[in-house]
Amino acid sequence: MPLIELENVEKVYQMDGLEVPALRGVTLTIDPGEFVAIMGPSGSGKSTCMNILGCLDRPTAGTYRLEGVDVTTLHDTALARLRNRRFGFVFQSYNLLPRTPAVENVELPMVYAGVTDRRPRALAALDAVGLRARARHLPTQLSGGEQQRVTFARAIVMSPAIVLADEPTGNLDSTAAGEIMSLMERLSHQGMTIVLVTHDAEIAAHARRLVQFRDGRIVRDEPLRRRPERVGGPAG
């Protein structure tokens, strides 16, 4: 059974009374264990697609089945539960809670899941991203790359079905970006399903499959060989 099935998904935003289409019929299937890179110029609909995949937003039309279940009809509380247990989010701007130690940031999803042995699990997740020694550090005391690794620890701590990473290297220098990418490859090796949105063809090249968006549609969807020389398509 596919993990994710989007069928003719449309999304229309209302802006000052104007209807702005962001997705114009997207059909996409992702199987468990895949490592998918989504590319496309700004406004092509890739972020909207990510938000819908992560149950942060609902499609205007079409169906979205997650593990065979239609989630378009689910209530807010059920969607919150899905975000909590089935998805791990990584954002370009890290989005860690300020004034909150790294380990407590990692504990956050478990707080909402009602998990009681949060501390050991959070420390294990930090260990997995190589930051156990920084558990008590505040986000402001961590480098950008370290903050992003904390975000990954938070994303994987609930053992989700899929990690959604929206421009995870967008704010990082190439060294830190390299660390993040090898982390993602390691996760992928361990069988984690990953969807990665990026502008950067070199970053996208780490994935096994490339989906290209343009004007709210998928214009290209092809497997990537291991580490090709160059990946085509406009970066914007």
């Binding site: 992560g54 509380t77 919150a80 539960r81 247990r85 989005n95 860690l96 999803p109 909402y112």
Partner: peptide
Amino acid sequence: TREIGIRKAVGARMRD
């Protein structure tokens, strides 16, 4: 607002 967004993204319900 951003903190609220983060909490919702990691699974906070409206009631939380």
